[in-house]
Each structure stands twice: as structure tokens, then as C-alpha cells.
């Protein structure tokens, strides 16, 4: 039930550079905050995000406790051919979310 939003242009020209924007639901609990009973709230973060374009990795990011809740990440890539962008976020407590988005290259 984790929500992720991905935005790409609907269609791009071959060779064009386009921006990929992503937003995913996650508390990004730092592991440095005190809970109500004085103990530390355990860390719960997304540790890594990767993106492949028709199977080839084009972007990878390691996240830390310093990334804000509900992480927003944007990056760029070159339009090579029509196909699928695959996204995977992994993190603490077995967190794993996969999403795909279609890109049409004219």
C-alpha cells in the first residue's frame, strides 16, 4: 500500500535529456529521535533507490537519515528508445517497493 509517484514527459525525442521526478511515501525515521518514554525511536529509512531503463541501470542513490520524510528525488536521463523505466526503493525492515513507468521516444 506504499504510494509512489513518478513523473516523466509523455513523449520525448531520441537523444533528448529529460527529467525524472519521484516521490514516495515513507516516514524516514532518523534513528536519532527520542520517543515519549525516553528511548530512541528505531531507525526506519529507505536506504537505496535505483532506476533502470530497459534493463540498464541509469541512476542509483544511497539515502541517509538526512533525507526528508516522503522522499522526493529528481534526476535526468537521455532518451534512447521507447520502453520501461523500472524503479526500486529498498530500506530498513525489509522495505521494498517497485514501480515502472513507460516512456515513448519519437
Amino acid at each position: 500500500m506504499t504510494n509512489a509517484l513518478i513523473r516523466l514527459p509523455r513523449s520525448v525525442k531520441k537523444g533528448e535529456v529529460f527529467e525524472v521526478k519521484t516521490l514516495i511515501q515513507h516516514p524516514m525515521e532518523t534513528g536519532f529521535r527520542a520517543g515519549t518514554n525516553g528511548t530512541t525511536i528505531p531507525r526506519d529509512i529507505i536506504e537505496e533507490m535505483i532506476c533502470t531503463y530497459n534493463g540498464v541501470e541509469i541512476f542509483r542513490m544511497k539515502l541517509s537519515s538526512a533525507i526528508a520524510a516522503n522522499p522526493y528525488v529528481s534526476f535526468h536521463t537521455v532518451a534512447t528508445e521507447s520502453g520501461t523505466l523500472y524503479f526500486r526503493w529498498t530500506g530498513d525492515n525489509g522495505f521494498k517497493v517497485e514501480e515502472t513507468a513507460r516512456i515513448t521516444v519519437a
Binding site: N3, L5, L23, A69, Y72
Partner: peptide, 12 residues
């Protein structure tokens, strides 16, 4: 809207 985390709630 892509940078506004509120949109994750709208999706729900």
C-alpha cells in the same frame, strides 16, 4: 505537484 508530498495522500 510532484514535489508536494501531500499528493501522496491525494493518491490514497
Amino acid at each position: 505537484d510532484m514535489a508536494n508530498p501531500a499528493m501522496l495522500w491525494v493518491l490514497d
